[in-house]
Simulated scan of single mutants.
Amino acid sequence: MLNVAAGVLFGVPAGLALAVAGTTLGAVLAFALGRSLGREALQPRLKGKVLAAVDRRLTEQGFRSMLLLRLVPGVPFQAINLAAAFSGVRLWPYTAATALGVLPGTAAYVTAGASASSPTSPAFLISAAVMVGLTLVTFVSMRGAQPAAVPAPVGEAV
């Protein structure tokens, strides 16, 4: 709703810049808060295979992983912020990936807000189509995110 409001109040160029800046700043503040709470305090809890895999992925491929997580709408934004804060991802890759990753969805919402007074305009119809497309991407990605089978250790019965 805030992105739509940015489009209504400021138009597309200024509204988009303000919305992306605000979203990125909020994500960075959440990241900093999570880091200040203490990655070290959570480190002993990262013994589970899933948590360790997430931590390793975000640490080793921070920019790429964050960009993919930000591009797919429907992934809980605050959960990503905290997962990143408690991982080894560095601040600059996190910030850059967040700003780039939120751009398509934010642009669609800001454009929809800016063109809401003429719902048959190409700008409004394209932004609505992008929002529908992003929603479909969410459903497809959620459907394809089946947990992988964990192989049994050698020598143990399945």
Rank of each mutant, 00 (worst) to 15 (best):
G22F: 06
E40G: 08
G22V: 07
G34R: 01
S65N: 10
V50P: 02
V50C: 05
L51M: 14
V20R: 03
A17P: 00
V28R: 00
V54G: 00
R39H: 12
E40T: 08
L51N: 12
R39I: 07
A32S: 14
P73I: 14
G48A: 13
L46R: 12
V54K: 00
L51S: 15
A17E: 04
A19G: 06
G22W: 05
F31G: 00
R64W: 15
K49R: 15
L25I: 09
L25W: 11
T23K: 10
R35F: 10
G62N: 04
R45V: 07
G38Y: 05
A14H: 04
Q61G: 09
L42C: 02
A21L: 13
L71G: 01
Q43I: 06
A41Q: 08
L18H: 07
G15Y: 06
Q61I: 05
R45S: 11
L69Q: 11
A52P: 00
A27L: 02
S65Q: 11
A27E: 01
V72F: 09
F31H: 08
G48Q: 14
V28N: 01
F31D: 01
Q61M: 12
L37V: 14
L33M: 15
Q61W: 11
A52F: 10
R64D: 07
A19S: 15
G48H: 15
A53W: 07
R64C: 02
L51I: 03
G38H: 05
G26E: 02
F63V: 00
F63W: 02
S36C: 10
T59Y: 03
G15S: 04
L42W: 10
A30W: 09
A14M: 12
P44W: 06
L29S: 06
D55C: 03
A14T: 09
L37D: 07
T59N: 04
K47D: 13
V20L: 09
G34E: 00
A14E: 08
